[in-house]
Each structure stands twice: as C-alpha cells, then as structure tokens.
C-alpha cells in the first residue's frame, strides 16, 4: 500500500499529484464500505481525534465526525463558542490543553489563514485543516474532485468554473490547486470586487461574466457569498448580486449543453443559486456531501498510517 507524502493535511498546495490520486482511490474503497449494511471498519480504533472548530460549521464538522466514527476512532469535539478562547486563552494554549489528554490527531477549523501551519510548528499531533480563513479547505477540494470524477469519469481536461465570492473563499483556492494538479482547466468568475488582483498568476482563466463562464465550463462550482467574512462592503446588495451573478434555470436553459452544478454549501437559496437549479438533475450537491465522508475517511486513514504506533 502506498503512503501519503505529508504528516499533516495543511493544504492542497503541499500535496503531490500522487497523494491526491491516492486519497481519491482510498476514498473509493471507503465509499464502498459506506454502502455496506455495517458501515464501520476498525482501522483507527487506537486513535483519538479532536475536532476543534473555532468557526461555525455544520456539514464539515458532522462529516469529519461521522468519518472518524466509521473508522472506529475515539473523538472529542470542541467549538469556540464553548471554549476558553473567548476568555482570552491563546490558540496554542487551548490546543495544548486538548493534546495533553493524549490526542493523536487534530481536525481544526480556524478563521486565520495559516493557523494550522502555525500549530504544526509547535505541536506533535497530526493536523487536518478543516478550513483556515480565506486560505485553504483541502478536504472540500478533495471531495469536489472526487465528485467530478465520479460524475464525469475523469478530471483531466474537464473545464471547471468557480463562480462567486473568490476573494473570501478558501474553497476556491483549494479547488484551484487540486484541479490544476489533476489536469483540469479552471476559470474563476464573479464581481470584480470579489476577485483578488493577481489571481491569474495561479494559471487560471478569469471572467467577470456569468454567461461566459457557464458557456465555457463543464462544471460550475458555485460559491456561497461569504457575508460573514467580508471586511467592508464589496457588493451593493444581495439583491443586485442575484440579478447579475446569480445562477438560475433561465441561464442554464440558454446553454446548448448540460453542465454539472456543484456547491460546497451551505447554499444561500435564491441568492447565488436558485432552488430550481440547486434541486435539479444537473446538481450533484448532495453527492458532494455523501462523498465528503468517504474522502475524509481516506484522509484520516492515510495520515493515521504516518503516526508511529
């Protein structure tokens, strides 16, 4: 069995293409497990994993938790709302207190870009980045890649348009890194105020016209407008965003081809995506969620293999 080249999953940018392929292949096997009557394997029964979430999350936290349980790991959960962070404890102190309880792996979400990289210099436990601010969300990109491959049978050569708030999205950045490594073509699209200058340095196409992006792509990965992460107002109103950048059935009907619609969730229904698109046959949004568990099982399994035990 091959092993992954990293000790932590801090970001897609640290992975080799072979690592990504290995994760996707391993996820295939775990997806098969998840479809069995008994959905549990004993692989991580000697491993304790802390899910440490300093930012709100529903699906990512649940998905990790389920993946851990399916692998028979012991888990503990922590979120900043109940933590000492608000009392002024530093990140390092909080995490060291958790690790003192003999935890092997840490799944962390944090609002600061680089927070897991910072931790990796100061602690021994294996770290899985479950989203660090506007930087990376590697498991989301892996499950997106897995879902594209599952739907279209390949990733190489597929044209993926990432549409929406690119500036405040960790999903966009991790998707760009993952898709590029796997040979897909990538375009980002959104209002000019939500696309960082210099984004084209990542070797991708940039469009400011949703119609153009939809016409170009095979897959549209539609991002949530991250109202909570914006500093200062970057668009005049959600209403105007929906009018000029929202994706609805009329737009899709104008295309002379069928495209796949993805969304990392949670959807602002009726804003970036209309309900009739989100719930249509084009959409693989729920498959993404389902695949998320298998992909996270694969990541945890492969990283646990690197822990000396």
């Amino acid at each position: 069995m091959n092993s992954i080249s990293v000790r932590h999953l801090l970001g897609i940018k640290d992975l080799q293409e072979t690592d990504i392929q290995l994760i996707l292949e391993t996820a295939d096997r775990f997806k098969e497990v998840l479809n069995r009557p008994i959905k549990k394997v004993p692989s991580l029964r000697d491993i304790t994993i802390a899910n440490v979430f300093f930012e709100n999350s529903t699906r990512t936290r649940l998905s990790f938790e389920l993946a851990e349980r399916r692998l028979s790991a012991d888990t503990l959960n922590f979120s900043s709302a109940q933590s000492s962070v608000k009392k002024g404890e530093t990140l390092l102190d909080t995490v060291n207190n958790i690790l003192a309880m003999k935890v092997d792996m840490l799944v962390m979400r944090h609002a600061s870009p680089g927070a897991p990289h910072f931790l990796s210099k100061h602690i021994n436990a294996a770290i899985v980045n479950a989203g660090d601010g506007t930087h990376e969300h590697p498991t989301q990109a892996l499950l997106d890649a897995y879902s594209i491959k599952e739907k279209l049978g390949r990733i190489e050569g597929v044209k993926v348009a990432i549409i929406g708030d690119i500036s405040h999205s960790r999903v966009a950045l991790s998707n760009i890194f993952a898709l590029k490594k796997l040979g897909a073509e990538v375009m980002v699209c959104g209002p000019k105020t939500l696309i960082p200058k210099y984004i084209d340095s990542l070797g991708i196409k940039v469009s400011f016209d949703v119609r153009q992006a939809l016409n170009w792509c095979d897959v549209a990965n539609v991002l949530r407008i991250q109202l909570e992460r914006q500093q200062g107002k970057n668009i005049p109103s959600l209403r105007e965003y929906t009018l000029y950048f929202g994706i609805n059935k009329t737009l899709l009907d104008e295309l002379d081809k069928e495209i796949v619609i993805m969304h990392p969730g949670p959807i602002n229904r009726g804003i970036e995506l209309s309900s009739d698109v989100a719930d249509s046959a084009h959409s693989i949004i729920l498959q993404q969620v389902e695949n998320g568990v298998a992909v996270r099982m694969a990541v945890l399994y492969l990283l646990a293999e690197k822990i000396g035990r």
């Binding site: 940018k13 870009p113 680089g114 660090d132 601010g133 506007t134 930087h135 990376e136 960790r170 950045l173 960082p196 200058k197 210099y198 984004i199 340095s201 990542l202 500093q231 200062g232």
Partner: peptide
C-alpha cells in the same frame, strides 16, 4: 485589513494584501 504585500503570494496564501 492587509497582512502582507498584495501580490501573487498574498493570493496564494489567502492573506489580505
């Protein structure tokens, strides 16, 4: 809101420039 020079690197790191 900037944390570092605005450049290809700030985009790459997801840090405000």
């Amino acid at each position: 809101y900037g944390q570092m020079n605005e450049s290809e690197i700030s985009v790459f790191l997801g840090l405000k420039g």
